[in-house]
Design a protein around this nucleic acid. Structure first.
Lengths: 163, 163
DNA sequence: ATATCGAATGTTATAGCATAACACGTCAAG
DNA sequence: CTTGACGTGTTATGCTATAACATTCGATAT
């Protein structure tokens, strides 16, 4: 799905369902790769899935602390860094925030759509954008190893509300 | 040039020349638009042009203070914000840093290529990437108002050096 | 000329984001 | 049963950014 639009991104959907799906896949992936999805890490991913939007590290930390985990910044940052490495969470540079990946395990250099009204973050079809970027860079002899592609704008719902 | 590769981006060039060009255009633009390119602002732009790479706000501040301007953060941030508004400077979200625009006055939502070795920042052909992004967003009904497109990788020189 | 207003600058203080460095506990391999 | 790797917790600190207020400067209208 990394290169196909996710029809549910902005549509109404059973969120518990989609979170459950993602958690299940995350656990499967971790078992496969030998990565240890420990309690803090697992809970961190759940927090991001429940929020269904990008959260700052300190927001995550607050929730972790409420659940009995440590309440110092490294607790959150370490869990988040781990999840980012595993491809289970993405960092949104523009927001200095983190969001759960909605389709882990499928290779993708993601494209994010951030609504300036409701702050929802969706992942969009990345492949064509990435191709264009590779081409543009290639013309200058630059080799792209990783990319940050983020769009700020209005999601369908907020656009409708504004009209 | 916003949609054409800048042949000079990674090539050897007379940097004093290209900086002078940019400064001249910046001043022309400011006169046109009525924006006031005051001493701090002007010096800030010069600092970024001289560095020829992305600088953090505090790096800029340090240099400004050395030149007799105020040495508190807002001094640098205000000048930088002004220059960003005028399209004379770009913010690189991934680096929390700022770089002078190499072709001001030409409408563009820029694409940045950041070398992970030498930290040079170049602007690449933006139009095709932006089109792909608009298309991907459009499929989800999302309207793009602004974009952050940044690639991390190796510039030609560092790639050659590494080989 | 000078009063007035707005924009730019300077300064103090504080908020928000992120990491270095060390201590402790656990668990598996030798 | 010791050793070493890893995960977690904690202290302390550094970097990034902005809010709020004081002061200065220059353009404009009187």
């Amino acid at each position: 799905m990394s290169s196909a639009p996710d029809a549910r991104a902005f549509a109404h959907h059973d969120h518990a369902d989609c979170s459950g799906d993602v958690m299940a896949r995350a656990e499967a992936l971790s078992r496969q790769s030998g990565a240890r999805l420990t309690p803090v890490r697992r809970r961190t991913l759940e927090i991001l899935l429940e929020a269904h939007r990008a959260l700052g590290a300190y927001d995550v930390l607050e929730r972790l602390a409420a659940d009995g985990f440590g309440n110092q910044p490294p607790v959150a940052y370490r869990a988040l860094d781990f999840l980012v490495e595993q491809g289970l969470v993405h960092r949104i540079a523009r927001l200095n925030a983190f969001a759960a990946c909605m389709h882990p395990g499928e290779a993708h250099s993601p494209v994010f759509l951030i609504c300036r009204e409701c702050n929802i973050v969706a992942e969009a079809a990345a492949a064509p954008v990435r191709s264009a970027l590779d081409a543009a860079a290639g013309e200058l002899g630059f080799v792209v190893e990783g990319s940050t592609i983020e769009a700020l704008g209005l999601c369908p719902a907020c656009r409708a509300a504004a009209a």
